[in-house]
C-alpha cells in the first residue's frame, strides 16, 4: 500500500463549455453505496439554469447550421472519447451505485454504442422524415425536419450515464442545444461525461449539464420562456401533470420516453413546409 494521498476532483457544473461552480454557492453531499463520503457536487440554482439557457440559445444557430455530416462526426467523436475513458466511468458507476463491475461495464458499453447509433441518424433524418409533397398545382412543395431550438431534459436517476446520453444524444443530433439536469444521487458520471464533451469538438453551449435537485429545477425548466421543449423521461410520472401545466405558458413541447427510438429525435424537431411556384 502506498501512503500517497489521492488528488480528489471537485465536481462542478458544465455551462457554455466551461466548468463553473454554482453561482448559489450551494453543494450537497453524495456518498457511496457503502455510505462513504465521495464528493460535494453543485446544487444548481434557477440562476444557473438561466445562464445555461443563455449559453444554449447563443450556440443554437451555429450548431443548427453545422452540416449533418459534421454533427454526425461530432457525436461519433464523443463516443470515441468515452470509449477511451471506459475504466473511469466503470469505477465511478461501481463506487456510487454499488453496481457490479460487469453491470457497470455493460452500461458504459451501451452508452458508447448508443452514441454511435444516434450519430448515424444525423444525415438520414431529413431523407426519412422529410417529404416531397405532390400538391395539386404547379408548385414545388417539400417538408423538412428542422431543429426546435433550446431543449431542457431531466436525466433519470439510473442508469446515470446511459440515461444521460439517452437524454442528450437524440436532442442534439437534429441541431438543438440542451440543458440537462443529471442524476441527483449519481452525478459523477455526468460531470465526468462533461469532460468527455469538452474534448470532443462539441461547440461551447451545445450541451450544458447541471447537477442538483429535480423538484427544484424541473419546474423552472417547465416555466422558462426561452426553452422550446422539455424531455421529462427522468421525472416521476406523478409530477408530469404539474410540469405540463407550467410548460403550457409558451406551449413547450414536453415528452417522456421509455426507449431509444427515432421518435425521440423527431419529437424535438419541427416540420417546415416550403412552397414555390413552378413556371417560366
Amino acid at each position: 500500500m502506498s501512503n500517497r494521498i489521492d488528488v480528489k476532483k471537485t465536481y462542478k457544473l458544465f455551462i457554455n463549455g466551461a466548468f463553473p461552480r454554482t453561482e448559489s454557492g450551494r453543494t450537497y453531499e453524495i456518498k457511496s453505496a457503502k455510505g462513504v463520503f465521495i464528493a460535494n457536487p453543485c446544487l444548481a440554482s434557477r440562476k444557473d439554469l438561466k445562464d445555461a439557457v443563455v449559453a444554449a440559445r447563443a450556440a443554437q444557430s451555429s450548431w443548427n447550421k453545422a452540416s449533418a455530416y459534421n454533427k454526425g462526426q461530432i457525436l461519433y467523436r464523443i463516443a470515441e472519447m468515452l470509449e477511451g475513458r471506459r475504466a473511469q466511468f466503470v469505477d465511478e458507476i461501481v463506487l456510487v451505485t454499488g453496481a457490479t463491475k460487469s453491470k457497470a461495464e455493460k452500461e458504459v458499453t451501451d452508452s458508447v454504442d448508443r452514441l454511435v447509433w444516434y450519430a448515424g441518424w444525423s444525415d438520414k433524418l431529413s431523407s426519412l422524415s422529410g417529404a416531397l409533397n405532390p400538391v395539386a398545382g404547379p408548385y414545388y412543395n417539400f417538408t423538412v425536419p428542422e431543429s426546435m431550438g433550446v431543449i431542457a431534459a431531466i436525466a433519470p436517476e439510473v442508469p446515470s450515464l446511459l440515461g444521460l446520453i439517452e437524454a442528450i444524444a437524440p436532442i442534439i443530433v437534429g441541431g438543438n442545444t440542451i440543458v440537462v439536469l443529471a442524476s441527483t444521487k449519481a452525478p459523477l458520471s455526468a460531470m465526468s461525461f462533461a469532460e468527455v464533451i469538452a474534448t470532443s469538438d462539441v461547440p461551447a453551449g451545445v450541451i450544458n449539464i447541471l447537477t442538483g435537485k429535480k423538484d427544484e429545477i424541473a419546474p423552472w425548466m417547465a416555466s422558462h420562456m426561452d426553452i422550446d421543449g422539455f424531455d421529462i423521461s427522468g421525472l416521476a410520472a406523478k409530477s408530469h401533470g404539474a410540469i405540463r401545466i407550467a410548460g403550457a405558458e409558451n406551449l413547450k413541447r414536453i415528452y417522456s420516453f421509455k426507449s431509444a427510438n427515432p421518435g425521440r429525435i423527431l419529437a424535438y424537431l419541427e416540420d417546415k413546409t416550403v412552397w414555390h411556384p413552378i413556371g417560366l
Partner: peptide
C-alpha cells in the same frame, strides 16, 4: 421560424402538404 413558408406565393393549401406552426402557433 415558421411551419409553412410560401415563397413567391401565399395562402396555398393541399391535403398532401403538412400545415402547422412553431412556437406558440401550436402542436
Amino acid at each position: 421560424r415558421a411551419g409553412v413558408i410560401w415563397a413567391n406565393t401565399f395562402n396555398k393549401f393541399d391535403p398532401t402538404s403538412p400545415f402547422g406552426g412553431y412556437k406558440e402557433s401550436g402542436w
